[in-house]
Nucleic acid binder design. Structure first.
Lengths: 247, 247
DNA sequence: GCAAAAGTGTTGAGAATACACCCATGT
DNA sequence: ACATGGGTGTATTCTCAACACTTTTGC
């Protein structure tokens, strides 16, 4: 049982898959692409692909994200760049998860603002934003399954996003560069599937140092009284955290 | 740029590495093994090895853990079995992290009680429990480095353990099957490197439903007044969480 | 004027801290 | 008797949730 025997290691294929989430029309949505080849031809799947020989895992995820959306982001320290957040999620390596060969997939989680292109077309095949409630909800047993174990990966990604906006400033990754407190609140409401008190929410986020910085302008794009515009502050961890109701 | 092309995928070696932590004499310690072959021959490293062809990632980690300690644990849902906790940590795949070939390592985090064997000998080479303060502390620039990127992996594992005992019942994985509130408190103190108020700690953990269940007995092994013995309760998530001071 | 969304003030409930104090053992 | 750790009570401080109320726009 010698370890690290270079002449005898079993070869694996390594891919990255992307759980790319956004908030559209008050709903948390994930990007899916239609598979053009077997296996699972015609099924919807998470975007992904092989890691190239000289490429790091975060680099590969970043490249896939750029191919699908045009956004630039780096995965290394879980950082936000050019409006998108990218971080490693988990790795899936069940021996039979791909019927052709042994494939280990390093899934990444990406959070992006509502993109202007409704159907991003990095590849020629179809792509769509699907509400996660239609993909994972406990109802709807008639839904068409995703390829491979992508339903599991998606569920893990959604769970991670839901818990991470509690104690980090990541919810701003779902917003455009400038946004109002109300828009940020609607992000929380969509991701958690709850309604929050607008007054307490306002006090909380504006009172957390480093979370939001005023950008000077105002907007009335949501109707009503003009709202102050903010940008994401430097803070990455929220203390005290946002509290999810009904826990 | 066709994806999932079986005839052209670049082959990777896939390993699992273990960040195995325990608390010994009021200190958080990690298990290290001495490398017997190049590269990094003679360096201390995290225990680990190749994933076998028919084996899942959690299975491989579980097997490595058993080889090193004799403990049984399953990694799938991050579960505790036979006194140890095992969960996937993160995956490390920098192209040059192994000088021989392209290796992707799926690191796992394991938490175990103080084991009776001071120097577990799963392999013939040496093994030791090293206090993490000696391996990662900001001082001690003279310390010998670990093999590969294992210092980074260890740091990530320690950080995960520190934050996870805040909002989960995982600290009990560091304790024997039956333990006192004081022993559990000393686990928190060792992992966080702080001192906690024994009175408030006692009220907090005994007041959190499902965290601890009395096992009926008492002990005086810590001296002083006999302390009630507890076992880990079924709860996995702590609500409200334990609060780390000075944040 | 009226609806709609933004923002402020106030109040009461519950949790965390700090610490005084008592309890039950070993030596 | 005394040291040692286990465990309870209590006052102060802080945060959170609930909600009344005011502000500023579009129609």
């Amino acid at each position: 049982m010698s370890r690290y025997d270079p002449s005898a290691f079993p070869p694996f294929a390594v891919t990255v898959d992307l759980v790319l989430l956004t908030v559209r029309e008050h709903e948390l949505c994930a990007l899916l692409v239609r598979r053009g080849e077997p296996p699972f031809q015609g099924y919807w799947a998470l975007p992904g692909g092989f890691v190239r020989p000289g490429e790091g895992l975060g680099e590969a995820a970043s490249r896939e994200l750029a191919e699908e959306t045009g956004l630039r982001a780096h995965a290394s320290p879980g950082q936000v760049m050019a409006g998108a957040h990218l971080e490693q999620l988990a790795t899936y390596g069940h021996p039979q998860r791909d019927p052709r060969m042994r494939v280990v997939s390093v899934a990444h989680l990406a959070l992006a603002p509502d993109l202007p292109t409704p159907k991003p077309g990095g590849d020629a095949r179809g792509a769509r934003w699907a509400p996660v409630s239609e993909l994972l909800g406990p109802g709807r047993t008639d839904r068409e399954p995703l390829a491979f174990d992508h339903e599991l990966i998606l569920a893990d990604g959604v769970e991670r996003a839901r818990s991470k906006i509690e104690y980090s400033a990541l919810a701003t990754a779902f917003c455009p560069e400038e946004f109002t407190v109300g828009e940020l609140r609607r992000v929380y409401e969509a991701v958690w599937g709850v309604v929050l008190d607008p007054r307490n929410f306002h006090r909380k986020v504006t009172g957390t140092p480093g979370f939001l910085v005023p950008s000077g302008g105002t907007t009335t794009r949501q109707g009503g009284r003009p709202a102050q515009l903010f940008k994401a502050g430097g803070a990455t961890v929220l203390n005290p955290p946002m509290l999810r109701p009904e826990s």
